[in-house]
């Protein structure tokens, strides 16, 4: 907008009966931007910044709502407890395992799905929908549905195994198999998001590159590794960051599939935070656990950002 237009408009605005909005026009960009960004800022301050401060503060308190005692300063006690708590460590490692398995897993499966969806079928909408349905399905629903798939007597997974003459598995009766089930479910659920992002990336790659490669006599597989993959890097990097951060927060699928069992073997960090906060009302300890998860997320984000910067 040119200054002349703006000046003229401001003058006109002042001449009309000035509503409140008219007065906004007197502001410079800075002041207007302040008002426009204010709601976002207020929300972020109220729901992110203030809670983060309170979280860190609470993690140094001994505060249990069931004890009836007022909060008291506990120093590093919650953190010392955390490092000595076997369930914290198992939930920490479960979270790491789920992340390390399902993020690359979803990437590989998502890549395959995206390549298929990129085939010029006539019914494109159906294929796109096939990617959107798993994406839009609530994680909790997904957990319930797959819990039924893996049910030991009447689930379809064991049914297929039985029909193939293979031994069946009581999936939720052992840590290892329950983890396999949780990871498979998570990969199914999240690969479609990966596929959608990769698909968009695929569609931005100029065809001429492939034609040139064709002339050079490069096969399809070589084309994939020399053209497709490098050009997809930015899209993949972004998808990986998002996916990793959400994988660290894994809660819905294990909660609906195993509730953490057998024992506490499939409890994830997010589940343990919720349990201490809501079931035990031990807010001090729950806060310390949340700070641990916060730190973990930060480390991962910084790691990714550095990797992207180095790659760029």
């Amino acid at each position: 907008m040119s200054q002349a237009v703006a000046d003229r408009q401001e003058t006109e605005e002042r001449q009309t009966v000035g509503g409140r909005f008219a007065r906004l026009m007197d502001m410079g960009d800075g002041a207007l931007a302040f008002w426009l960004l204010l709601p976002t800022a207020v929300l972020l301050l109220a729901i992110i910044v203030y809670p983060v401060c309170r979280l860190i503060y609470t993690s140094f308190l001994s505060l249990s709502l069931t004890s009836g005692l007022p909060a008291s300063f506990a120093g590093l006690q919650n953190y010392r407890d955390m490092f000595a708590d076997p369930v914290f460590w198992s939930s920490f490692w479960n979270t790491v395992i789920i992340t390390v398995v399902t993020v690359p897993g979803a990437l590989v499966v998502g890549m395959a799905l995206a390549l298929i969806a990129n085939i010029p079928f006539r019914q494109r909408w159906a294929f796109r929908l096939a990617l959107l349905v798993p994406w839009a399905l609530p994680l909790a629903f997904c957990g319930l549905i797959f819990a039924w798939f893996f049910q030991s007597d009447y689930g379809i997974v064991n049914d297929v195994l039985r029909r193939l003459g293979l031994p069946t598995v009581i999936w939720f009766n052992s840590y290892a198999w329950a983890t396999v089930a949780i990871c498979l479910t998570t990969i199914w659920k999240t690969s479609s998001f990966m596929a959608l992002i990769i698909l968009a990336g695929l569609q931005t790659i100029p065809r001429s590159l492939y034609e040139a490669a064709e002339i050079d006599g490069a096969g399809r597989v070589r084309q994939f590794f020399e053209i497709t993959l490098p050009l997809l890097r930015p899209a993949i990097a972004v998808a990986l960051i998002f996916r990793t951060i959400t994988a660290l927060q894994t809660f819905d699928i294990p909660y609906t599939m195993t509730r953490g069992g057998p024992g506490t073997s499939t409890v994830t960090l997010a589940m343990y935070i919720r349990q201490n906060t809501v079931d035990f009302l031990d807010l001090g300890y729950g806060s310390a656990l949340a700070v641990a998860m916060f730190a973990l997320s930060m480390i991962v984000t910084v790691f990714y950002l550095r990797m992207i910067r180095r790659g760029a």
């Binding site: 009766n173 052992s174 840590y175 953490g260 069992g261 057998p262 024992g263 506490t264 073997s265 349990q275 079931d279 035990f280």
Partner: peptide, 14 residues
């Protein structure tokens, strides 16, 4: 919770 999840884990062979 500490007791019952342990009992459960032991009985599941975990």
């Amino acid at each position: 919770n500490a007791i019952r999840t342990t009992v459960n884990a032991v009985l599941a062979g975990q």
